[in-house]
């Protein structure tokens, strides 16, 4: 049984200092099993300026079993599958500890963006490129950040406008859009 009381507390805890860390966790559905998190790309990396969305699924045994996390935003990184977004990170597997939280886990994912471990790759193609042709790796990663991790931010004004035109108050639209990570359909569901 998922400890929902703890999940609730985690969400409150996380929203308190999301300003500082830039890390957010919001429920995708009311049952608190599906969530999504967002992390800003670390400064000084090819991911800088991007906002990365991560799908989170809580297993039955959470927090005694690790949450399942997967990049929803496409990302070019040796430890993240460029196809599926699967993440290769020890704390999401056998090094998970119940004392970790969704926020600390997302911080670790963010740290992984800054410090790839090509020796333990999730994506062999990317890892090869990282090791053999670092310059190309950097420009590919940057290009992917530009193309996929910024699209939602760039398009956000369009979405705001669209929803305001449907008759919702702008402040509420902005808040909800942000909370659902820019997903237009989810935002509409909430607004209705």
């Amino acid at each position: 049984m998922i400890d929902f009381a703890r999940v609730q507390k985690e969400l409150v805890e996380c929203s308190k200092d999301s300003e500082g860390s830039g890390i957010k966790v919001s429920p995708k559905s009311d049952d608190l099993v599906q969530l999504f998190g967002t992390i800003p790309g670390p400064v000084g990396t090819p991911y800088e300026g991007g906002i990365f969305q991560i799908d989170i699924t809580l297993p039955e045994g959470y927090p005694f079993e690790p949450p399942k996390m997967q990049f929803k935003t496409k990302v070019w990184h040796p430890n993240i599958s460029s196809q599926s977004g699967a993440i290769c990170l020890d704390i999401l597997k056998d090094q998970w500890s119940p004392a970790l939280t969704l926020k600390t886990a997302l911080l670790s994912v963010q740290a992984l963006l800054s410090a790839p471990q090509p020796d333990d790759p999730q994506d062999a193609v990317v890892a090869q490129q990282y090791l053999k042709d670092y310059q190309t790796f950097v420009s590919t990663a940057r290009y992917w950040t530009e193309s996929f991790a910024k699209a939602s931010t760039r398009g956000i004004e369009d979405k705001v406008q669209k929803l305001v035109e449907m008759g919702f108050p702008e402040a509420q639209v902005r808040n909800i859009l942000e909370a659902v990570g820019g997903d237009e359909n989810l935002a509409l569901e909430r607004l209705l």
């Binding site: 045994g61 704390i91 004392a99």
Partner: peptide, 20 residues
Amino acid sequence: EHFIVKINEGQSKRIRCMQH
């Protein structure tokens, strides 16, 4: 809860402390 999860995972022989 931690013990039960670990025992069911077949890790009875080496259940580590919950602290990260």
